[in-house]
């Protein structure tokens, strides 16, 4: 469903992605691992259409469409979801209101009717239950005053609500203690289905103890330098990135 070919991208004058290839099939979970500065977050941002990156070569197609030609919201409408490493705070913007607006924008783009308030609330309650979350965060402004763990949980909850075809989890494990990590991982697992693909971007193997990936890729110097199964992650954990001849950036 996602096909990345020879992707090169710059931030300012600095080339970060240097010819990256990646194929993701329906229902698959791919982990992208790599040291700091390897280009993991850049990849996540380029896929979701963030400003400040210039794609100089290569292509990205998503369900046959040229993803790079689309605005961020159009990508969301197609079913792409980025769980942010640092979820943004929106003071005064109510979480429920925000989600309803987003969901209905996506539904409208797909030609589905808007959900009315009752149907929306019902859906929300149901998804909270699936994720074992309580509804306290619904009444608060989006991410505003949330703890690190709450922000990450809120991202997963949004994912549950917006039902993406492809979710990119950018360093979702960073800054979480074990308990919070387990809650987030359980959420992702609960949302697994044969129609939904996931890209886990992470520095550490730890997250993969909780979410079993189908494929593991190692990103370094702007390219995928090795791909394999779950065992690759374990090998990395044991031997460190140095094993693949990669310097950890300071």
């Amino acid at each position: 469903m996602l096909s990345v070919k020879g992707l090169r991208a710059k931030v300012g004058e600095k080339e970060i992605l240097k010819g990256l290839d990646l194929e993701i099939g329906r229902g698959e979970i791919h982990a992208i691992m790599g040291p700091n500065g390897s280009g993991k977050s850049t990849l996540a941002h380029v896929l979701s259409g963030r400003d400040g990156y210039t794609v100089t070569a290569g292509s990205v197609t998503f369900d046959g469409q040229d993803l790079l030609a689309l605005a961020p919201e159009e990508r969301a409408h197609l079913g792409l979801f980025l769980a942010f490493q640092y979820p943004v705070e929106l003071p005064g913007v109510n979480n429920t209101y925000f989600l309803k607006a987003a969901l209905n924008a996506i539904r409208a783009a797909r030609g589905q009717p808007e959900l009315d308030a009752v149907a929306f609330m019902r859906l929300m309650k149901e998804r909270l239950k699936v994720l074992h979350l309580d509804d306290s965060l619904l009444k608060r402004p989006v991410n505003f005053g949330f703890s690190g763990g709450e922000k990450k949980r809120n991202e997963i909850f949004q994912m549950a609500m917006l039902e993406p075809k492809l979710a990119i989890l950018d360093e979702t494990d960073s800054g979480l203690d074990i308990d919070a990590l387990r809650i987030v991982a359980d959420g992702v697992n609960a949302l697994r289905n044969p129609e939904r693909s996931v890209i886990l971007v992470t520095h550490y193997q730890r997250l993969l103890d909780y979410i079993q990936p189908d494929y593991v890729h190692v990103l370094a110097r702007g390219q995928i330098i090795r791909s394999g199964g779950k065992s690759l992650a374990l090998e990395l954990e044991e031997k460190g990135y140095g094993w693949l001849g990669i310097e950890e950036a300071a």
């Binding site: 979701s48 259409g49 963030r50 400003d51 605005a71 961020p72 919201e73 990508r75 969301a76 409408h77 979801f81 980025l82 942010f84 979820p87 943004v88 705070e89 929106l90 925000f98 607006a101 987003a102 969901l103 924008a105 996506i106 783009a109 949004q158 917006l162």
Partner: peptide
């Protein structure tokens, strides 16, 4: 901020 704007757009809002 551009971050806030991008965050909302990545969730499907114009």
């Amino acid at each position: 901020s551009d971050d806030q704007l991008f965050y909302c757009r990545s969730r499907g809002l114009t």
